[in-house]
Design a binder for these strands. Sequence first.
DNA 1: TATTGTTATACTCTATAACTATA
DNA 2: TATAGTTATAGAGTATAACAATA
Lengths: 162, 162
Amino acid sequence: MARPKTATLATAVQAAADQPLDQSLLLSLVGYNCRRAYLTIMPHFEERMSKLALRAVDFSVLSILKANPNITQKRLSHAVSVSAPNLAILLDKLEQRGLVLRQRNPLDKRSQTLVLTSEGLKLCAKAETTVANLEQHATAMLTENERQKLLQLLQKIFVEGN
Amino acid sequence: MARPKTATLATAVQAAADQPLDQSLLLSLVGYNCRRAYLTIMPHFEERMSKLALRAVDFSVLSILKANPNITQKRLSHAVSVSAPNLAILLDKLEQRGLVLRQRNPLDKRSQTLVLTSEGLKLCAKAETTVANLEQHATAMLTENERQKLLQLLQKIFVEGN
DNA sequence: TATTGTTATACTCTATAACTATA
DNA sequence: TATAGTTATAGAGTATAACAATA
């Protein structure tokens, strides 16, 4: 009664090939969708920022230091979610490029405080302009209201989800 | 007229330490917020799925194969954004665990088609239940309407942003 | 003793090049 | 000649352990 197995498989394979892919379960998960959106935006980011030789995490560091001069590495480490050992290396490179200055904290000589150099400030300002343009481009399919709503909902997750 | 530099620095450092951290620029960027939300959800995911010995990408593969039996590795590779070499290794492991079956495609013997074994199906069903619970927990701060809106906006980005 | 930051190192993830088998 | 999949390997990113200096 049963047809040969290969014939059965061939039929099933043909049927599968003819179907559009069903990803409905994954598409119902916020985490999955966050990742997909992130992975869509990042190549645009990387392409534009490569001209300034900045990765996303480098930009985060510069931007936070611009808005918060003289914070400690400890605090920066927490803000950008980079472990202390990895941040040390990252800061070595920014310091070698003359963008950041590490200073021993006079109030607690265990820690170091961070400021942008004037060159770091200039590069950060340029990067922030680039990022603002990129943001418009990457979210061009959203109205400004939708973009604000999206930011608000995402922030609910990581502010209240901790 | 100028005070000693260390005193100036001490004052600035103290002021910085007293301020709440200003992250306003980063918080205005969709990509950054996607990443933060993703990084908030993932530890919950990993903790619960570790009991089933599944990483996020393993779950994605099982879930897609459950909904799309007999698709080729090529198609799966594209769906989960894992390169062919890395997918081969990933599938080796799932096959060794008896969760997935690779079959030479009778319609084109270059390719292989994939199905879950009965054990793979069982584990995937269990994982999908776990994930559904996790989703409720991870997004408990959102109303169901907000959660749906969030999914819709994120999907706009990666559907229309390509 | 505890904390900040550093060094060294290991582990995971992702990317690339070269190969086999099939079309 | 092109494609599907594999193997081997390299690189980036992240995590951990041990240490020095300071509190």
